[in-house]
């Protein structure tokens, strides 16, 4: 008499979604070439975004000393009785900094959402 053997199929995940998600996350966890590309694309997106924000900062705020060095007469220009240097360096620079920060946070969160979606969807 032969022993009874339970026959089963290959193990199945409950949903296709879970399979896909874990496979891409597993690529990152096991350092496959594909995982490297996934992580690299997130890093490049975030670093590129940071470079763009800092580029705007350098071109605007960073260039002002040079501008006033090259055109010293600019210091005498007044807008509504206030010297233009005071208006720009004392007031306008702050909305610019906050605006850049706000734009960065929106874009950085969007990059991260795209990464989460990539991990979640089927390949």
């Amino acid at each position: 008499m032969t022993e009874r053997v339970r026959v089963t199929g290959p193990p199945r995940r409950r949903t296709a979604d879970a399979t896909a998600r874990s496979s891409r996350a597993r690529d990152i966890d096991t350092d496959t070439r594909l995982g490297e590309i996934y992580l690299g694309s997130l890093l490049r997106a975030q670093l590129g975004l940071a470079a763009r924000v800092l580029g705007v900062l350098a071109v605007t705020v960073g260039s002002w000393p040079l501008v006033f060095h090259v055109w010293p007469d600019l210091a005498a220009v007044e807008v509504a009785g206030v010297p233009v240097a005071w208006l720009v360096l004392g007031v306008l620079v702050y909305p610019l900094l906050v605006g850049l920060g706000w734009w960065y946070v929106r874009r950085a969160e969007r990059n991260e959402r795209a990464f989460v979606d990539l991990m979640d969807t089927r390949p």
Binding site: L49, V53, L54, L57, A75, P83, L97, L100
Partner: peptide, 19 residues
Amino acid sequence: ADMLWYPIGWTAGYLVLLV
């Protein structure tokens, strides 16, 4: 006015830190 760079730098430092 050249001293206005101190408060600007102390604020912009947080933007660099943020990004």
